[in-house]
Design a protein around this nucleic acid. Structure first.
Lengths: 186, 186
DNA sequence: TTACAGACTGACTAAACAGTCGGTAAAATT
DNA sequence: AATTTTACCGACTGTTTAGTCAGTCTGTAA
């Protein structure tokens, strides 16, 4: 019954299928089962809808991660938890994942304030800094480390999304690649 | 004087700035300094132009790589050469790199025949297979290894593209991250 | 029970768009 | 030299698009 949500859901599905500009607002409204005008009641412009969708997905992902991940006994275990949760999120939210991948390389991404990005990255940077100061991982710049870890995760996502593995096999690939990641940063 | 090339150049620049559908064909023609109709003389549709641009860039990149990279004394050296050349290509062809990143996550990418993708990947897969059979790298599936290496490269590109480092510093980051990559796959 | 606010509608419009077409000029083929 | 093919032009068009607007419906609270 939440029309705003319905619009966002429809937009997500269609954007992933046809691209941002390849999807007319009229089609989004139709798919969402609302009137054309309703879309513009909730979102001033189409661009605002795209941005709002990204922000919405990012916040849901953050919520998922902080819900799933608890600090573990060791640093390595904590990082592993993070890694696993990130990959699971992508597997369980394929459309959302593909949308964010598309968004991040698009010109829209420039409209996200650098400050907000930095803000959302801070906890990860802090954690990595802790790891460095305790000599648990390589003393490289944290933003480099973070970028490499993220890329690894997205590489793995790509791999898992392109194959249909059983849960067992999935787990095995995830833990194998985590060990590889760990070898990389230590 | 090559109008086809002018159109592709203009399209590249504008697509990176405004996105595929955010760029009207009329603007591409204007930027290229040709008539509107000329664009459609060379490319049947706008979609065809986007695809042609991707194919063109990919082939220029392949040419660059096979020109730069020669087989080295050791397996590790060969992989390092590949790694360095890939990163240099992205640094020297920033627009092209950003375009391909955008393209690969877009719905357009589905229009590239899987066979062609496989074809272009074959030499890399062969090389990795060789490394595995000689016990030089981890015995993981080659497509997984390749995806992880590619992701690493694109992570590094992102890092280097976001910072302005001196040539010396750039080299240092590249060789540091290559050692990390090597630790990952061995 | 009336007054008001905000959710919601869908027909509408002005602008933008991809692609066409009738034509010219130059190059290639005969 | 004649003919055909190709490169190129830019005004034009039918369609599609984002966004508007005048007004209806629904809930709430005075």
């Amino acid at each position: 019954m939440d029309k705003r949500k319905q619009i966002l859901d429809a937009a997500l599905k269609l954007f992933v299928e046809y691209g941002f500009h390849g999807t007319p607002t009229s089609l989004i409204a139709k798919e969402a089962g609302v009137a054309n005008g309703t879309l513009f009641h909730y979102f001033a412009t189409k661009d605002a809808l795209v941005i709002a969708l990204y922000v919405d997905i990012k916040s849901r992902m953050s919520a998922y991660l902080s819900e799933q991940v608890e600090v573990q006994k060791t640093f390595k275990d904590t990082i592993r938890e993070q890694y696993i949760a990130s990959v699971f999120w992508a597997l369980e939210n394929r459309l959302e994942y593909r949308f964010t991948e598309q968004f991040k390389t698009s010109p829209f991404f420039a409209q996200i304030a650098p400050k907000e990005i930095e803000e959302s990255l801070k906890p990860y940077y802090d954690m990595l800094n802790r790891g460095i100061s305790e000599n648990l991982i390589k003393p490289q710049p944290v933003d480099l480390l973070f970028t490499l870890i993220s890329s690894q995760t997205s590489g793995l996502n790509q791999y898992l999304l392109n194959h249909q593995f059983s849960k067992t096999k999935q787990h095995q690939v995830i833990s194998d690649t985590f060990e590889m990641l760990w070898n990389m940063i230590t």
